[in-house]
Design a protein around this nucleic acid. Structure first.
Length: 138
DNA sequence: GCCAACGTTGGC
DNA sequence: GCCAACGTTGGC
């Protein structure tokens, strides 16, 4: 199982929208590197949901409901999307500042390449966010 | 609002 | 195929 992170501008599509909708097709990705990651996603993979812009923080955990299939919003080109469903809202959102400070999470792609909209997350980084988000006993 | 980083485009 | 110019993204 692999772990992932997707970004969204809360003004465009927020975590609350996913919680409310119960599922969504993660469409509109038009970047080759991001597409590679979309294609590697498997059903059940955990996905962190990050709000870019303001406030910049990881707010919830989703999972892959359906693996890559052709993006219906792409008029041209070979683009794909996946379906996501919410698992849980973090008790404590994890801010970008906190992610940059923490020894385990500061090497995340989110910090290194903030522009990549679909990113891989290592197992230790995944657990680091769980910890910072208040999901693990101290 | 500014600017750095990144990706894409187009001229050569 | 290279690279300069440009547009976009996103943190600050």
């Amino acid at each position: 199982m692999n772990h992932w992170l997707v970004k969204s501008e809360p003004g465009t599509y927020a975590w609350a929208d996913l919680v409310k909708g119960r599922r969504t097709a993660w469409t509109g990705v038009r970047n080759y590197q991001a597409r590679l990651h979309l294609r590697a996603m498997q059903v059940g993979d955990p996905v962190w949901f990050y709000h870019s812009g303001a406030p910049k923080e990881i707010v919830g955990l989703a999972r892959v409901l359906r693996s890559a299939y052709p993006d219906p919003t792409a008029a041209h080109g070979d683009w794909v999307c996946v379906d996501l469903a919410p698992i849980k809202t973090l008790p404590q959102p994890v801010s970008l500042a906190a992610i940059k400070t923490d020894r385990v999470t500061r090497d995340m792609v989110l910090v290194k390449n903030s522009r990549l909209s679909v990113q891989p997350v290592t197992a230790p980084q995944f657990e680091g966010i769980l910890r910072l988000g208040g999901c693990l006993p101290e």
